[in-house]
Amino acid sequence: MEQFPGLIPYWVIMVLMMMGLYIVIAHGNLIKKIVGLNVFQVSVFLLYITMAKVEGGTAPILAEGIKLYSNPLPHVLILTAIVVGVATTALGLALVVRIHNAYGTIEDEEIDKLEDQT
């Protein structure tokens, strides 16, 4: 535990991640589930960016007189992931609209009930 204060950023991120997971599991509303996925996603991005930070470093843009930069690789990976994340969100929301058209509700349980009736 000697590294205790240095790990707090990771712990905050873990708490955020678990909030996202909780929203996905506990709520029956499909839009709420997608929002939960988004929260989870942003926390994962934060985890990567946290790992890229170097104490005393600056943004990875080369300039005269600066010796220490943060790690650019996680930034690149997350840049890709953000855009892909929005694409998947759009697809999920399209499915929600389609489900609403078909069942008239976006609550998980009501959809189950309607399925049982038929």
Binding site: I31, I34, V35, N38, V42, F45, I49, T50, A52, K53, V54, G57, T58, A59, P60, I61, Y69, S70, P74, H75, I78, L79, I82, V83, G85, V86, T89, A90, L93
Partner: peptide, 22 residues
């Protein structure tokens, strides 16, 4: 945390576009 490019993308795409989609 020094990730300026990521911050741009998140503010435009994450906070902007996905809110509009929702």
């Amino acid at each position: 945390m020094d990730a300026v490019d990521v911050a741009f993308t998140e503010a435009a795409v994450g906070a902007g576009a996905s809110t509009v989609l929702m």
